[in-house]
Structures are given as structure tokens and as C-alpha cells.
Computed example of a mutant assay.
Amino acid sequence: MLSRQSAIFTIGGLLTIAAGRLFGLIELFIMGTALVTCVAVALLIVTTQRPRIEIGRSITPTEPEVGQTIQVGLSLLTSSRVPACDVYESLAGGSHVHIALAPLPAGQVARANYQIIAQQRGPLTLGPSLVEVGDPLGLSRRSKRLGSATNITIFPRSVAIDLPDPNTCQGELIDAIRRVIRYQPTSSEFQAIREYTSGDDPRRINWRASAKREDLVVNEYATEIKIDTHVALNSNQNAYSAEGFERAVSVATSFVRSIERQGDDLAPSLGVWCGGQSFHCSSDNESLEALKHLAKISANDNQTPLSIQREPSSIKVDIIITGKAQTSWVESAWKQLGSARIVVVVLCDETATSVALPPHWYVLPCRQLEQFAEDWKQLCIQTTVQSHEHIF
């Protein structure tokens, strides 16, 4: 491609040649010929220069969230001698990153890095890149595409919270789960004794040990009862403001991320219903599928909760996330999920004081993610490392 400067050289050269012929001045003729020759040589240089470069990208972190800084590393492997050239990495919104390469022999690797801020959740395309070579005078340039684009997913923002697990956590929600477990019929075997606390089943008092200690103690049992936690995200558009829906998606993402943080084979599994789809998250790979769905979910109308099949012998815990307290939708979701005895409702566009829900349900507002994380710690916070025994 000829530059504007090459057009000036060409027109100026032709005019100079014509003036030299007109006035019989050999100097003008030579000068004009030199200008036109410069353009021809520039075209020859950029035509014969064919840099062969293989480009690779590394992304850190590998699962970026909204608001995080993404470090992109570029590796440029030369398959032939490469003259001084410019590499342009295309970014979203029509912008690009410019990298100036010095001359390199074949078989060399040049590395460059740049940073971008993840602005919104969803797919993000990096590249493709272009390599551009030119002549020393800037009269002509030629560009060539390098490799293909890299598609990454920007995940919703999350905060650190813990899934309710009576083996490792403490808090009001955990106390409620333990009260249900104490009266839950199950096949158990003796595990240990502990001090009596209010709400313990009197049938579990160990009278012989209590007499020796002069204080009430109860038997604890290893049990196979499972905690079946399910998160339901209301995606009805009329339930949210724009900011409220993003907070709701972030809350749901935070619960899914908790699977990775607790990271033990015996950690509780998590069911997630959102946007007309359901996910069972008990491993990082399963959690990743739910996270990808949350990254692209949008608020729609008339999203009816799905009927979910759950283990009848488990302790059901429902976490229902919505914007405004649409009582009918919340109750419908609760019934479709199996009418759990323990329910937490998260309101992302309303305060808890204005909600008409059953009094034994837990209601948490979420006007800021960080404050929600602090409020959640009152209900559930991990205090011990997951062991390989279920002890209640």
C-alpha cells in the first residue's frame, strides 16, 4: 500500500521530470527520476519482504472476572528472517495494541505483554494480529494477518463466601441445619461426645458420662445425611434494575466459586438453576459450565422455575436470588425446588424490612457485594478444614 508521502514523491517527480524536459535542465530531470525511483524501490522492498511469524497468547488469570486486570502475553516465533516491523493486536471496540519489533533472524522468539481491564462479563475476543512492514522512507507499507483470534470468557464478579456445611462452618444458618439433622431419621454410628447445647435431642444425652463430668454431654454420631444446597436465580427482567441484575448474577457466581475454594471431595455439592437451565456442581469442571452460563445470561421475561428432582433423604437448603421481592415467584421457585425447610432469600434491589415472606426464612439484602459477603458470614462461615468424617 502506497502512503500519502509516496503520492507526493510520484507527482513531484513527474512534474520535476516535465520541467527538466521543458527547460532543458538535466538536473531537474535527474531529480525527478530519483523521486519516482524511490517510490518504485519502496514498492519492491515491501513486496519482497514476507515475514513469517507464528503468534501465541497466554492469559492471566485464566478465568478473569469483571473488574480484574488481564495480563496478555504474546510470543512471536519467527520462521524466517524478519526485518524491523510493527505488530498490531486488535482489541474489542476497534482499539489495538502496537508492538514495534526489531530485526530478528529465523528461529527467534520475541515476547511482549500488555494489560486490559475486564469491563463487562461475556465473551471477549483478542486479536487477530497484523504484522506491517515498510520501507525506510515510509513510502509504502504492507500488512499481513498473523494467526487467529483468541476467544476468552469474562466471568461475573464474585466475592468469597462459603457453602453451608455443618462439618466445617459456623453461623445462624448452620445452627438451623444442625437442629434439623438432630431430628432427622438416619442410620448412624457413635463418633464422639460433646457438651449439651440448647436444642439438642434429650435422647442423645449420655447420662453416664454426664454423671462423671457433673455436666450434661451428648453423643455425636457419624451420619450419612447430605446437605443438598440449591441456588435459584430469578432472571425475570421486571424484577430488577440493570445494576441489580448484575449484582444478582455476581451473588450466584460467588456461590458457584465456593465449590473451587472449598475444593474437597467431601465438600457439599451445589445445584444451580438460572435462565431456564439447571446445573449440578460438585467439581471444578461442572462448576465451570455453570460459570460460563452465568457469564452470558441476560434478564428476560416469563422465566418459570424448573421442577428439580432432589434426594428425599437429604437436608434441603434453598438460596433464592432475586431483585425485588416478587413473593409469587419466590414461593413458586421454592415449591419447584422441593419446598426446603431452610431457605435464604437474597434481595438485590430491595431491603429486607419491606418483604412479606415466612418469618423463619432468612432474608439478606445485597446493595453492595462486599456488604453481602459480610452479612453472609453471620449465617455461614468456614471455621475448620474439611475432614474425612461427617460429624454433627
Rank of each mutant, 00 (worst) to 15 (best):
A106I: 07
G147K: 00
P128T: 06
A160V: 11
H96Y: 13
L126W: 01
P166G: 06
C169P: 02
G122P: 05
P166T: 05
H96S: 12
S143Q: 11
P156H: 05
I161K: 00
P156Y: 03
H98Q: 14
R121P: 01
A160Q: 09
G134E: 09
I154K: 00
N113P: 03
Q170S: 09
R111E: 13
A118I: 01
R157F: 07
R121D: 03
P128L: 08
L104D: 04
C169N: 09
P136H: 09
G94T: 10
P164A: 08
L124P: 01
G122V: 04
A102P: 09
A149K: 09
P128V: 07
R111S: 07
V159M: 08
G127S: 05
S140W: 07
Q170G: 00
P103N: 04
T125S: 12
N151S: 13
A106R: 11
F155H: 10
A110R: 13
D165V: 02
C169T: 08
T153G: 03
I117Y: 12
D165M: 02
N113K: 12
A112I: 04
S129H: 04
V133N: 08
G147N: 04
D135Q: 07
G138S: 04
L124N: 03
A112H: 13
V97W: 12
I154R: 00
T168D: 10
R111C: 09
V159G: 03
I154F: 03
S143G: 10
R142N: 07
G93C: 08
